[in-house]
Each structure stands twice: as structure tokens, then as C-alpha cells.
Design a protein around this nucleic acid. Sequence first.
DNA 1: TGAAGTGCTGACGATTCGATGAACTCTCCG
DNA 2: CGGAGAGTTCATCGAATCGTCAGCACTTCA
Lengths: 223, 223
Amino acid sequence: MVEDDLTVSEVVTRYLEREGFVVEVAYDGAVALERALADPPELVVLDVMIPSVDGFEVCRRLRAAAPVPVIMLTARGEEADRIVGLELGADDYVSKPFSPRELTARIKAVLRRAGGAVATAGEEPTTLKAGVLEVDTVAHEARRDGELVALTSREFDLLVHLMRNPRRAFRREQLLEQVWGFAYGDTSTVTVHVRRLREKVEADPADPRHVCTVWGVGYRFEP
Amino acid sequence: MVEDDLTVSEVVTRYLEREGFVVEVAYDGAVALERALADPPELVVLDVMIPSVDGFEVCRRLRAAAPVPVIMLTARGEEADRIVGLELGADDYVSKPFSPRELTARIKAVLRRAGGAVATAGEEPTTLKAGVLEVDTVAHEARRDGELVALTSREFDLLVHLMRNPRRAFRREQLLEQVWGFAYGDTSTVTVHVRRLREKVEADPADPRHVCTVWGVGYRFEP
DNA sequence: TGAAGTGCTGACGATTCGATGAACTCTCCG
DNA sequence: CGGAGAGTTCATCGAATCGTCAGCACTTCA
């Protein structure tokens, strides 16, 4: 996110992180460009009015370097901004003042389209593998030994989240927040879903080799 | 875009802008010609039936002045229109009613042929096959076991979209957006159309083998 | 060794979700 | 006008899924 208004950037950051995104904020155009080019993010939220290098210029240079999706933030009624932004390759625009909820919806829509059916051209691996386990996030299918495993929606999301962060231990609260989207709740929900997931995915659910328990902490995925 | 039907022009505009195009609409032939000649666009989508100067005349004069790519919109079944249109220099034609998705694909294809550097996926095949199912997107025909299946316009678009992205799971919202061109709406519309499609296309609609349900997600086409 | 803490299991309502049938709107045509 | 066909919306039903809880099993550590 490129935004010099601290209030805005903090509110948005907090909100997006609750949604499971990892957010990095730059406060002016030059720094933003430098960091985005060094380590390209999956998506950029870009305010038009920022110090040093303006939003349009940042957008133009970003898109010249890589096909990173860009959402631009403009002041209300700046229709011209919208047109220019779209010409420069912005994928969407949101006019201020906006609600974090709306921004989140747009971000998800753009990400969906970017990784979506029409343009596809897979840069990121659509399938995750770990031993005999194989998960196709596009087809929404999980296989063990090539054998189809019928997972429910939650079980699938849970498995994908764990597999995308192998060897990393999550506390139940974290999983509840990052997979369920709940800010608070009964952590036994996670326990039960992990159990059900194991029953379907592990060769011996009583002695799990992939979805492992980390005592006193939570769970971790072992490849 | 030259189109006097507000509903069509607005839906298409919204859809194309989401795809990153900049769209300008003229509502009759004379205005279209004037503006296109003053500031030639990269591509013209041209309805045949428009006020003042008809689509063929607009096409002829445009092509006389500049090598601008033209896609013509014709009413269904007007085969003669197609011939005349192509003779006059149209690069492609799309018959009404069409899906925004279809138009977008054609636009990208024409721009690609014209040498434009629009990032897009590969060429879309004109006939799609999956088991006993066969769909001809040009003839707008679907067959099962060689037997003609009478699909409505939406059913056809839906089937084509699914078949062009086999094994990919779509949520209803995605289908609503990509097939219908709606940014939001009642997702039960998708459900009902899927049901009717199954009744016509599946051997046993109660146990679909091609248009499959992905619980908690949406639908997926199995080849 | 045993008590406290933590995770696992099985079962049971509550909820959500998809399929279905039908009503309703809209357009096209005669 | 009015009837047909297509598309959309709505209410309902049954099934899949989800969240919770109590009891049991295991780990840890005094």
C-alpha cells in the first residue's frame, strides 16, 4: 500500500491483516517504487496524491516492469483520474472516502481476475504437493496417491492454508482468524476440523505425519 | 463502441473497463464517424442497426480512412450481414445476443492479429469437445452423441465458459460476472441455469458427470 | 506418581447450502 | 392483445456441513 495519510494506512492495514493479507506500507512514491521493484508484491494499492513521485508515475513504471495488479485511490469525483489510471494499467480504482470493506472487496475481485480464467497464464503454482498429497487450488480438489479425497469447503481451505505455509506452527486463534475469518471464537472448532481433515488425509489419523500437533501451541504442516 | 441500446452499451462498457480497456460510446452512425475520424480508436465495435448512418456505411468509410480494426454486432442468424460486413473490411462479427465474455475474447483476438501488444491467453478454439459432448461456438450449436441439443443463449454461454476452463471450479459470483456480465446479483440465477443445462446435457441430470457441483464453492466442468 | 493442563473423540442440534418447482417479468411476434 | 419462450426471482425441502460440548486420553511437571 502506498499512502501518506497515516490514519488511512493504519485503518486499512489493520483491516486487511484481519482478512489474512500481509500488508506493507510505503509513504511516498520513490520508496514505493524501489521496494516494489526489489520485491514485487501480489497487488499494489496506490494513492494518487503522494509525495515525491505521484501515483500515476508509480503506476506507469510498475506496470512497465511487471504485470502487478494495481488499485488506485483517488479523491471523490476525479473522473479524469480514473480514465488516466485505467489507461496506465490500473485494474480498478476506489474513490475516497471509502470503507475498508469496499476496498477489500475490490482487492479480492482484482486478485480473482488476475489469477482467473480469462488471462490465467499461471505464474504461481496452482497445485501444492507434499509426499503423496496433492492439492489443486483451482479445481478445488485434493488427492492422496492420485486418489480423490472428498474434503468439505472448510477442510479444503484449512489444508491449503497449512500447505502454503509448511513447517510453520499456527496457534488455533491464528487459524480461526486466517482460515475462518473470525476475530474471536471457540478454538475447539479448529481442533475438530483438524481431526476431520486428518481422518481424510492421513494414512493413520492417530499418528499424523503431515498435519502435526505442536503441543501447547497448535498445528503445523510437515511436507 | 457504436451502439444505440443503452442496456447493451452500459453492460459492455462496464465489462470492458474492468478488463482494462478504455471505452467510448457513440449512439448513432454520424457521430461515431465524426469522432472516430477525428481521433481514431484502436478498435471499433459496431452495431449494424444504428440511427442515421447504418453500420455497414460506417464500416466502409472508416476503413477507407484508416486501417482501424472493426468488430460488427449483428442480430442472430443474419448470415448475409456477416458476409457483407466481412467484405467491407470488418475483422470479425458477433451475433446478438452475445455474452460480454465472448465479445472480450473476440476483441483480444482481433487486437492480437492487428499486432496490438495486448496481453492475453492463446487462441480460443472454435469447437470444444468433452466425451460425447461437442460444442461449436461459431455455429452456436451443441451436440450430444452427434444429436443436436437445443440450448438457450445463456445456457450456451454458460456451457462454453465452463468447457473453456475445464476442471476449474467457479463460484457463482464469478460465473455471474464472467458469463452474465453482472457485477453483482442473485446467485440463484446461476443455480437455476445450471439445473436446466444439466437437464439438457447430462445423461442423468440427478447425477451430473460433466457439470459438477463443488460443495460450498460452486460448479466445475469435468471433461 | 498423580494432578493439572492440553488434545482427541464421538455425538448431537443448528445452520448453511444446493436442488427443485413454480411464479413472475420481459421481449418478441402474430 | 395475448401466447410462447427465455430469463429471473422466490419459497421450500432435504441433505451436507458446521460448531459445540462432554467425556476420555495423553503430556507435562511438580
